[in-house]
Design a protein around this nucleic acid. Structure first.
Lengths: 137, 137
DNA sequence: CTTTACGTTTACGTAAGCGTCAACCACGAG
DNA sequence: CTCGTGGTTGACGCTTACGTAAACGTAAAG
């Protein structure tokens, strides 16, 4: 990274901004906060989202696409900004990482298999279709 | 094991057999049947599972690992043994396949990203740990 | 005959992940 | 002053994917 200093990253978003950007409802965003996944600033009663919150929302939604539960996602995203901490903590974190990695690699294998099989079904299907059109024309 | 015959095509399984093999509960298997995902033979009231059902159960569970809902899984596994059918059907099926493929490829990208980021976190974490152990020895 | 193992249906319970009101500010424009 | 826009907190509802009894059938073993 060559940009030692960037413009002070002071941008903020409203709840509606993030909802529109990520195509989720306000209810969803507030629900994630309720579950401790987001912690926006409050100006009065109003939520103000900082870059950190925005990134986390992205991570949460990616986790959802991967089929993780919100609880699992919580442990994952909290790993990202864990402070150095003590030895026990670090060892625990490394163990968590290994576990998640194993899960993800299993999922990747599942995806590869499924893609191959879908390709096979598609081939059959396309053959049937060609065959059908051959006859009628 | 209640396997009646072990010749390749004729083998059957009890509900408990499949539950043990795939590590799910009987309730789960019956629930999948209720949702139309499995259609075991009945001998009297008792369910008897054929190779086809066993394969489908495997597909269902793989679909779950990928984060698909049972409804989505239903459309996917039903694609596998669709009969040739008429043109409209085939076109529809091809469209479904394209959709699923796009989803899966998105998931694969998500996984790659997450794996890379986990590797990064792990690196940081390992560095902190090494640092800590350096100091105490 | 009773126990044990394995199966069945029916039905209520539950946790997750939101959807959907209702009722209430706050504020700038017309 | 009123209206529209955008925000807030409850609180109840709903679907999915099962868990968890309860109550019963059947067939072999002791």
């Amino acid at each position: 990274m060559h940009n030692i200093r960037v413009t002070a990253d002071t941008q903020t978003w409203s709840i509606a901004d993030l909802a529109a950007e990520y195509d989720v409802t306000l209810r969803t965003i507030r629900f994630y906060e309720d579950r401790g996944l987001l912690t926006p600033e409050r100006r009065g009663t109003v939520r103000v989202y900082h870059p950190r919150d925005r990134v986390r929302l992205g991570l949460i939604l990616r986790g959802k696409r991967l089929g993780f539960s919100l609880d699992e996602i919580a442990t994952i995203v909290n790993m990202y900004d864990a402070e150095p901490g003590e030895e026990g903590q670090l060892v625990y974190l490394l163990h968590q990482i290994a576990t998640r990695r194993a899960e993800l690699e299993q999922r990747r294998r599942d995806i590869e298999e499924t893609l191959h099989e879908l390709a096979e079904v598609e081939r059959r299907c396309q053959a049937d279709l060609d065959n059908l059109r051959q006859k009628t024309h």
